[in-house]
Amino acid sequence: MSEVLLEVDHLKKYFPITGGVFQRRVGDVKAVDDVSFTINKGESFGLVGESGCGKSTIGRTILRLLEKTEGKVIFNGQDIHKLSKEQMRGMRTKMQIVFQDPFSSLNPRIKVGEAIGEALLDHGLVRRKELKARVIETLQICGLADYHYDRYPHEFSGGQRQRIGIARALIMNPEFIVADEPVSALDVSIQAQIINLLSDLQRDKQLTYLFISHDLSVVEHLCDRIGVMYLGSMVEMASKDELFRNPLHPYTKALLSAIPVPDPTLKRERIVLKGDIPSPANPPSGCKFHTRCPLASDICKQEIPEYRNVGDNHFVACHFA
C-alpha cells in the first residue's frame, strides 16, 4: 500500500449554540462527529453526502480554517492542529483549497494577477521580477490567457472564476488540495471542463485531492476512494468500484439509486428516503439514520452501529451490513 499523506483521526467539530442573556452554551451542533479516514499520496478521496452533513466542515477543519473540537489531523506526519501560527503559515503552502462559490471566493477589488500571485510573494517563494511570469504560466496551465492578468474578477464567467480559484491554489505547488464542491455552482457543460482540468492537474503534478461533493456521478469520475457521510458521521467508505458495485449501507444504496441514468426506458428500483435530515444539534439515538432508514428496527434506535471493516478495506456502519 502506498504512503499515507493525510490521516484524520476521530475528528470532531462542534459549533456551540449559545442562548439566554449571558450567551451561555446551551448545546452543540455536531457538524463533524468522530470521523476517521486516511488519504494516500496521489489519491483522490471523494466525500459525499447531503447538504449539511458536515462535508465542508471536515475540509475546513483539515486545513485549520476552523479549529477542531477533538481528534487529530495528521498531514505528512505532523499534527496540523498543534502547529504554532507561524508553522501553520508555512504549512499552508503544502495544502490548498478550491472553494465552492466562484463569486464570493475572489475579492472584487483585486486584479486576477495579484490575487493569484500575492501568496507567493507573501511567503517569499518568488522574486518580484519573476512573479508575473509565474502567474501567467499558471494562468495558462489552468486554461486562461495571459491578458487576463490585469482583469478584475467581475469580468469573468463562473467557470473562468473557478479556473482562477484553481490557479490561486495551484501556484503554491501544493501536495494536497481540498476541492470543496468546486463544480456544484457551475453549469453542467462547464462542470465537465473543470473536472477534466482537475484530473489533468492531478496527473501532471501528482496532486492528492480531497474532493467534496454531493454529486455521486462527479465523484465517480474523479475519485479512487469514496466516503459517504450522514449527519456528521461516516457511514460507509470503500474504493470507488467496490462502493458502486456493492453498496452495503442503506443510505449509500439510496444515494446511488438517485443517480440519473440517461435511458428513459430503463426501469429501476428507486429508494426514496422519507422525511428530512434531522438536526445535527440533536441527532437521533442509536444509528443516526434510523429515522429515515427503510430497514430500521429496534436495535437501530438503541445501539450505535460499529464502523467496521467488512473486508477489502470496505468500511460500513450498519447493523445489517
Binding site: 500575492e118 511567503h123 480559484g165
Partner: peptide
C-alpha cells in the same frame, strides 16, 4: 469566502 481563501493561502 475570499477572506477564508487568504487564510488558506497563509497571507
Amino acid at each position: 469566502e475570499f477572506m477564508q481563501a487568504t487564510e488558506a493561502l497563509g497571507l
